[in-house]
């Protein structure tokens, strides 16, 4: 799944480590979500979106699911 996490991180000048600590996960998980290897669970997606003050749909791209 594609996400805007990397762009948002750059915008907020955040490292993966800092974001991971803020949302209670590991840096490796953030990396995997950013490159699309791992799909975040609903609670983690909510935490990430909430951290940036956005909705889940604004951070995560669900267009692939909509196409199905």
């Amino acid at each position: 799944m594609r996400t805007k996490i990397r762009e948002l991180r750059k915008l907020h000048k955040l490292s993966q480590e800092e974001l991971a600590e803020a949302v209670g996960t590991t840096r490796q998980t953030i990396t995997s979500i950013e490159v699309g290897k791992y799909t975040a669970s609903l609670p983690l997606a909510y935490k990430i979106a909430h951290y940036f003050g956005l909705t889940i749909e604004e951070v995560f791209d669900f267009s692939e699911l909509e196409e199905e």
Partner: peptide, 12 residues
């Protein structure tokens, strides 16, 4: 330690 043991990707 909590984050390491409860990380959802690690659990998956």
């Amino acid at each position: 330690m909590y984050i390491q043991t409860h990380d959802e990707r690690e659990q998956a």
